[in-house]
């Protein structure tokens, strides 16, 4: 709290300067969050409240806006944010192996931070460096043409504090994941956020045992399903309907 007040005081002139760039103060919301995140490592709720006050918004509005953007972290993160591209071009060029290697080396998964607070790992959408697939960003600095050897060297250098990219500010101990937890299951890690091979939010990652049993029953009974959508499909995609008919 006291540390934040000091930070706020320090950044206030810069904040005012940012706000002055725009015709309407609210426009400064994203740049201000960037600014505080740069100093705190994440967008703390104190920072969000301070921004709300500066821009005459309700704290809820600021939080709502911050939560929309994946580069804003509402919980502390590691000193090295490792963001590996999972876009199509990278996947075509072996991104899956690279991601598997990262997970193995770090011992954590998508959207997680190592217990020592050093690394945070995320699999992100196309980074616009498809010509240098597979690629990643370390604290938003590009690393291209990844190989397992490069990963080994990179992680070793980071652990030794000798990596060329500066670590992020870290003002609080990061929890296991920086995604605010929506329910107990996500917190326990039973559900995934949609990384490699795991579908999106709150999803049990494919079918659980009951699902498999259900699926097998349905398979036995599949004709029922087919019939119902058959006519519709015939209008939509006759070729596919034919293909499936075979």
């Amino acid at each position: 709290m006291i540390a934040f007040d000091a930070l706020l005081k320090k950044l206030k002139p810069k904040c005012d300067e940012i706000i002055a760039q725009y015709e309407q103060p609210r426009s400064a919301l994203l740049p201000l969050v960037h600014l505080f995140q740069q100093h705190e490592g994440y967008a703390s709720s104190e920072a969000q409240h301070a921004i709300a006050e500066m821009l005459a918004l309700s704290p809820a509005v600021v939080e709502s806006t911050v939560s929309f953007y994946t580069l804003f972290y509402r919980r502390p993160i590691g000193k090295y944010m490792l963001q590996v591209c999972r876009g199509l071009a990278c996947t075509l060029n072996g991104a899956e192996d690279i991601m598997a290697y990262f997970r193995e080396q770090l011992g954590i998964g998508h959207l997680q931070t190592t217990p020592d607070g050093l690394f945070s790992y995320e699999e992100v959408e196309c980074l616009a460096a498809c010509d240098r697939a597979t690629c990643m960003q370390v604290n938003l600095n590009f690393v291209y043409d990844l190989t397992p050897q490069m990963i080994d060297d990179m992680l070793a250098a980071m652990r030794a504090g000798k990596y060329s990219v500066a670590p992020l500010a870290q003002t609080a101990t990061p929890p296991r994941t920086w995604m605010p937890v929506q329910d107990g299951e996500v917190a326990r890690g039973d559900k995934s956020d949609g990384a490699q091979d795991q579908p999106a939010p709150n999803n049990p990652g494919g079918l659980d045992r009951d699902g498999v049993i259900m699926l097998d029953r349905i398979i036995a009974d599949e004709a029922r399903f087919k019939g119902r959508t058959r006519e519709r499909l015939a209008n939509v995609e006759p070729a596919l309907a034919d293909a499936i008919e075979k």
Binding site: P59, E63, S64, S67, F68, T70, Q182, P201, N202
Partner: peptide
């Protein structure tokens, strides 16, 4: 005009919530 109830997160994660 209170703007206490807002939408949080994005996409299929969208939920209705208050600040903090």
């Amino acid at each position: 005009g209170e703007r206490e109830l807002v939408l949080k997160d994005r996409g299929v994660r969208n939920i209705i919530a208050t600040a903090n």
